[in-house]
Amino acid sequence: MIEALETFIAVASAGNFSAVARQQDVAVSSVTRKIDALEAEIGSRLFHRSPRRLALTDAGQQFLPRARNILGELAEAREAIVAGDAEPRGLLTVTAPTAFGRRHVVDALASFLRRYPDIEVDLHLQDQVVDLSEQRMDVAVRIGLLPDSDLHATPLAQVRLVTCASPAYLARAGRPHAPEDLLRHDCITVATPPAPGFVWRYAGVNRNQPLPVRGRYRTDDKDGMLQAALQGLGIVHIATWMVCDQLRSGELVALFPDEATTSPAPGLPGIHAVRLRGRSHETRARLFIDHLRSEIGSTPWWDLQLQPA
């Protein structure tokens, strides 16, 4: 049964029997027999089969996440028995968005490795969403609204935005006293349409619709936005996790201080750590996610720094 479930998941991922047969170094007929036996066992067809394509049936789509959960629970139980009281060891693979990873994941990994000296880590920093199964990743840190999936997601923090500018810019252009004043200022914006959570929206302003701010500098790179603000090119609307150090040092000034310390507005995305059930490194993944959550804190440390003393 376990081999049949593993084969079913592999075929669903690959989209054909031949690729799975090559992966398992067996005949295609061996793969099809396992699928036939599984379909007979559960009493339903799992794939639409034709000479040109192979696709999951409705029953197959419903069964796929359950099959992964079954193997995931089994892997967790097996690893817990094997590990016993032994010290965790082995390789952990982690992926995270570039800017967030450099600022927050690297430090957490450093303390994690000091705590577990027999664990090794491969960290991949990239802004593209990684398929954990295809890329063989144990943990992914993701910022944004999570789509429905069979990934196990652990909330780490809620994104809070702050509107800020450098003292040099404010000395030259004047300080806006209300969000509506931003329409008369240079604002550092993204070069492509922003995600819904990152628009310049303020409660009770412009009928709660995004402000149509403009500016001469646009970029899709978060570090590029931060550096432009530090250079005095304009006002930036950015996540507190990105600029907490600059706000604390005075290199940037929060224009509407309550914005970063009150409850985040509805619709803002969250920061999550996700893992795929059934990976052989399940225990190490859970250990790191728990460690990362502890390092960030129930109220993220970067938001605590912005709260008035």
Rank of each mutant, 00 (worst) to 15 (best):
R115Q: 13
R115I: 05
R115E: 12
R115Y: 06
Y116E: 07
Y116K: 04
Y116C: 04
P117I: 00
P117H: 00
P117W: 00
D118W: 04
D118F: 05
I119H: 04
I119F: 03
I119D: 01
E120F: 09
V121G: 13
L123A: 09
L123C: 08
L123R: 10
H124P: 00
H124W: 06
H124R: 09
H124N: 05
L125T: 04
L125D: 04
L125S: 03
Q126C: 10
Q126E: 12
Q126G: 09
Q126P: 06
Q126I: 11
D127A: 07
Q128S: 05
Q128K: 04
V129T: 10
V129N: 07
V129R: 12
V130P: 01
V130E: 10
D131Q: 06
D131P: 07
D131C: 08
L132Q: 10
S133D: 14
S133A: 15
S133E: 14
E134K: 15
Q135H: 02
Q135L: 02
Q135F: 01
R136D: 14
R136H: 14
M137L: 15
M137I: 15
M137F: 15
M137V: 15
V139C: 03
V139H: 02
V139S: 04
A140H: 00
V141H: 05
V141E: 05
R142T: 08
R142C: 03
R142L: 10
I143S: 11
G144T: 06
L145Y: 14
L145C: 13
L145A: 15
L145V: 15
L146E: 06
L146R: 07
L146M: 11
L146N: 04
P147S: 11
P147T: 10
D148K: 05
D148S: 06
S149F: 10
D150S: 02
D150N: 03
L151V: 03
L151Y: 09
H152L: 15
H152F: 14
H152C: 14
H152T: 15
A153G: 09
A153Q: 07
T154H: 12
T154K: 11
P155D: 12
P155N: 14
P155M: 12
P155K: 13
P155F: 13
L156N: 04
L156K: 05
L156H: 01
A157N: 08
V159I: 14
V159Q: 10
V159D: 07
R160D: 03
L161V: 15
L161I: 14
L161K: 14
L161W: 11
V162L: 00
V162P: 01
V162K: 02
T163S: 11
T163K: 08
T163D: 09
T163Y: 08
C164D: 02
C164E: 03
A165E: 10
A165N: 10
A165G: 10
A165C: 11
P167Y: 04
P167L: 05
P167G: 08
P167I: 07
P167F: 03
Y169D: 11
Y169Q: 11
L170I: 12
A171P: 02
A171H: 06
A171K: 11
R172V: 03
R172W: 06
R172Y: 06
A173Y: 02
A173E: 07
G174P: 12
R175D: 00
R175C: 00
R175S: 00
P176A: 02
